[in-house]
Structure formats: C-alpha cells, structure tokens
Design a binder for these strands. Structure first.
Lengths: 117, 117
DNA sequence: AGGTTGGTTAAGCATGTACTTAAGTATTCA
DNA sequence: TGAATACTTAAGTACATGCTTAACCAACCT
C-alpha cells in the first residue's frame, strides 16, 4: 500500500536488534512511558531513547508527551508490511514446490535430467 | 525450535537490505550461480559475495561448488523463524484488543477512567 | 600450453550503529 | 522556592557495514 522504497529496509533494520524487539514485545502488551521501557534494559536512558527513535522512524512506534512523561505505543500496521514480504516469499516458494511436484509426476517415466524445470 | 539467542538478530539484519532481499526473491524462483545473481545487481562481484556470506551466515541461503561454479539456493525454514516472531506479536496485539473490547462492553455504563485495563 | 570464465581473498575507505558520559530543560511535588 | 523526576541534547568512541580495487586461483576451452 503506502510503502516508500526503503521502507522495508528500515523496518527489518529496526527489528534486527534484541533490545528493540524487547521494546516491541513490551508495547504489544500496552502503552508505556520511556522510563518504564528503560527499567528492565541494561543500558542508559539516552541509549533507550535512541532505540525508540529508530522504532519511531520506521513507524513501528508512536509516542506523545503529556506533562513530562512521554507515552509510547505500537502501530501494528507496520508489522504487517514486514510480515507480508516474508509471507509472500514463503508462499512463492511453496507454489514453486507444487509446480515442481506436478512436473515430476507428469514426467515420471522419462528419466531426462535437467537442473531446474 | 533450534533458535540461538542472536539468531533473529542475524535474520532480520540480513533482510534489512534491498540487495539481499532481491537475492532472496531471485532464489525463491530456483537456484542460481553467483554470477547469475550478480548480473542484475549494480555492484561488483565481491560485493555480491559479501551479501551472500551474510545470507549464508544466518542460514537463509546454502550453496555448494561443483567445478568452478557455486550454486546457491534458499533454506526456507529460516524465513519461518522471522515470520513466526512477527506473527506472534501481531496475534498478541489482536488478543489484547479483544480483551480490551470485552472489558469495555462489560463496563459500558461505569464511566471510571483508567489508563490501560 | 594459454587465454577466458567463475569465483575468492585481501586491503582500504566512508558511513552507520550502539552505546557512553556530561550537561541541559521542563514538570511536579514538598 | 527548591529539590526530585522524566526526559532531552550533544559529543565522543568503538566497532560493524557496504562498498571499492587489485591481485589471485582453479576450472574449462581451443
């Protein structure tokens, strides 16, 4: 749908870090403030903020500040774009296997060897 | 199943690059040699080799050399591990929405405001 | 044998990533 | 008002990434 060219790059990049995936898993269970997110993580607050910026930059997380506390929550739609790409590949793979199977049963008795039909 | 701790890190990292996703999309349609993979890509052969090393390091791609040509093919199981993580998050999110919906209909007439039930 | 094809290794370079510490700025509470 | 809380900004560092070019090796072909 509304996918800029480098959009998948950023989403997969964001997910390629345990800390960031932990943050996503936490936010899936409900919104949280920055320091709530930081509490279980073994790193400084600024480091957590930088992870949050990565997650916001790719649209996985939104946040708004009220008073002095910033509350973060997920935007689950972006997870879909990543999931969709992977699913598309896997289903393409399975279709290929199906076609390969058809080919093999059709040519069951002719022993000609080609690399890939 | 057999997931080392940093395994998802490597898979998502591998997918976080357009060139590498292009290689995966190509290999989904069937095995290919290194130079077949390199042909449509606007970069040197060594650069392609390095991308292939990343894809092999995370188990997304296997390759074997016969004669002087190395043939690459996908290992679709690893795509599953990435897909599974994302799917798990999305379903957790949907369950949360369901629980939230139940809560709201049950307390439809009591206007007490809590942040997250 | 000698050249071409297909891949590999090594080294170097510019940028990006994942932190750190130190020093801010607003809010809220006592 | 003045201290504690909740972030924010800036700057610096160490290491990883994504390329490049140059040189090299091992089939194959003629």
């Amino acid at each position: 749908m509304l996918n800029q060219p480098g959009s998948l790059d950023r989403v997969f990049q964001a997910l390629a870090d345990t800390t960031r995936r932990d943050i996503v898993e936490r936010l899936i269970r409900g919104p949280a403030s920055v320091s709530e997110l930081a509490r279980p993580l073994a790193m400084s607050l600024p480091a957590v903020m930088q992870h949050l910026q990565v997650l916001e930059a790719c649209g996985l997380v939104r946040s708004e500040k009220t008073g002095r506390v910033r509350t973060c929550h997920i935007e689950p739609g972006v997870l879909r774009t990543a999931e969709d790409w992977i699913t598309a590949q896997r289903t393409a793979w399975e279709h290929r296997l199906d076609r390969l199977g058809e080919y093999l049963t059709e040519h069951r008795d002719s022993p000609d060897q080609r690399s890939t039909p």
